[in-house]
Design a protein around this nucleic acid. Structure first.
Lengths: 216, 216
DNA sequence: CTAGAATTCCATCGTTCGATGGAATCAACG
DNA sequence: CGTTGATTCCATCGAACGATGGAATTCTAG
């Protein structure tokens, strides 16, 4: 007998998986308080009681969404890390930006929910943590900004946040920024990648160059 | 006889002004749906009906908050523009970043509400626009990225957004990022300014240099 | 086919939220 | 003092929301 979780993971067409999928999108668009269980149920085309049957109450469902998103983001980051391993810094940054931007454009609810967590508060206490700090430290190590993941100083962590948030902003703000720039989706994605690489890469490359100079 | 608006502007201790002030903070922390009129009333120490008496319904109050914030942000941007006028690019960016960061740390509800608007959606339709596009075009002109504010192409607008959002992120994410870096408020502010200048300035300065080279 | 388990929906409950009428209080002025 | 208008609070309403019991339906094992 499969457990309920295994079922949901294995069969993306199962009711439980369909609800989780819709919940990701709607929580990502409207935030925790802006989302009603009725909105999610309607999106799936089911009754609210079916939703509660599978996922418990609203907070439980939200926490499941957060865990699911952490899982996807972690997978994607590990994939990118393998991809850029051993390459020079500028190339590593360019590939990371391109790959993560592509991935997140496909799953905008991921940066959306992360940004909601960063910037907003919830009336309920102790909603599930998004494990971003863990990810940020991993990236800092992958970028050679720190050696040990355990005791990272503030500066490199904040630098990594500049890169990650820079990407998140353009994904989550797509509707707003596209209206502002009057670009279609494809052109917007291309411009975003260009601008991100233009803005983010020089600083790190310049410093690396200076470091080498001092060594020599 | 003064109008109600003039009264509120002139006397910051008036009930109407006190309500608007509390509403800015709470809408900024919890977002539109995360905020209840009761929370605002309790913050001021009054009854909900007093709130409705002065500002109408929840949407009206929210729109007043948005207008108020647009006013403050616009003033601050114009002040910075005068301050940096005529200086070289790197200096202009550094001063702008320092000044805007200081200002926004004092008024975190401003970036908070702007980011909520970017990234989140509301169940109600047609909530008051935050006039960010206008501001972004102004800054692009002030940075000599565009000549005419009217017909700005996408690229410079997206570059300006990278700068503005970079600042907003660290302000609005203070609680989260400070916990992550274990910095006190003062140290956090200092690090943020350093990191912002480190990340954002080189790209623009480098391009300016290349531009001059091509001219020569 | 059938019995039992799993799933889905209908009806409904209690709470919270936005909003308002109307009484009570306060301030200004002759 | 008394009248008038502005302000504030109390009581309460209807709608929306989260949640659940239980009937109806579907699925599954034997």
């Amino acid at each position: 007998m499969k457990t309920a979780l295994e079922k949901a993971r294995q069969d993306p067409e199962s009711m439980k998986a369909r609800i989780l999928d819709a919940a990701r999108r709607i929580f990502g668009e409207y935030g925790y308080h802006g989302t009603t269980t009725r909105m999610i149920a309607q999106e799936v085309g089911i009754d609210i009681s079916t939703l509660h049957y599978h996922w418990g109450d609203k907070k439980d469902l939200y926490e499941a969404v957060v865990l699911d998103i952490n899982k996807d983001l972690g997978q994607s980051l590990r994939y990118v890390e393998k991809m850029v391993h051993g390459r020079p810094l500028a190339e590593r940054l360019a590939i990371s930006i391109d790959t993560m931007t592509d991935f997140l454009f496909e799953h905008p609810e991921i940066p959306n929910l992360i940004l909601f967590r960063y910037f907003g508060r919830t009336r309920e206490e102790a909603l599930q943590e998004i494990q971003v700090p863990e990810f940020v430290a991993d990236i800092a190590r992958s970028m050679n900004l720190i050696q040990d993941k355990r005791n990272a100083s503030a500066r490199p962590l904040l630098e990594v946040l500049a890169v990650m948030n820079g990407i998140y902003n353009y994904i989550s703000g797509e509707a707003y920024f596209r209206a502002m720039t009057r670009l279609d989706r494809e052109a917007y994605m291309a411009h975003v990648k260009e601008v991100l690489k233009f803005v983010l890469i020089p600083a790190f490359v310049q410093r690396e160059g200076k470091g080498d100079l001092e060594k020599a």
